[in-house]
Computed example of a mutant assay.
Amino acid sequence: MAGRGPVPGRRGELARFVTVGAFTFVVDNTVWYLLKLTVLVEHPTTAKGVGILVATIVSYVLNREWSFRERGGHQRPHEAALFFAVSAVALVVNVIPLYVSRYVVGLQRPHVDLVTQEVADFLSGSVLGVALAMSWRFWAFRRWVFPEGVPETPKGAPRP
Rank of each mutant, 00 (worst) to 15 (best):
P110L: 12
V100Q: 07
L98Y: 07
V112R: 03
L107F: 15
E118F: 04
H111A: 10
R109C: 08
F84Q: 03
V119P: 00
H78P: 00
S124W: 02
V104S: 12
E118Q: 10
D121G: 01
F83K: 00
L107H: 09
E79M: 07
R102I: 13
V100S: 10
N94T: 06
V95D: 10
Q117A: 14
A85K: 02
A85H: 01
G106F: 15
V100K: 04
P110W: 08
V93S: 05
V112G: 05
S87Q: 11
S87M: 11
L91W: 08
R102S: 14
A88N: 02
R76M: 11
A90C: 05
V93T: 10
Q108W: 08
V104M: 14
L123P: 00
V105S: 06
V86Y: 06
A90T: 07
V93E: 06
S124P: 00
Y103D: 15
N94M: 09
E79T: 06
V105N: 05
P77V: 13
I96H: 01
E79C: 09
Q108T: 15
I96E: 05
V89P: 00
H111L: 13
L114F: 11
P110I: 13
P97F: 09
F122A: 06
R76S: 03
A90M: 08
F84G: 09
N94R: 01
Q75C: 10
E79R: 00
F84D: 06
G106C: 14
A81I: 09
G106E: 14
V100D: 12
L123I: 12
H78V: 15
R76P: 00
V100M: 12
V115Q: 05
V89L: 13
A81E: 04
S87T: 07
N94K: 02
F122G: 00
L107C: 10
A120I: 07
P110R: 05
G106S: 10
H78Y: 05
R109L: 12
L91Q: 05
V112W: 09
V89K: 01
D113K: 02
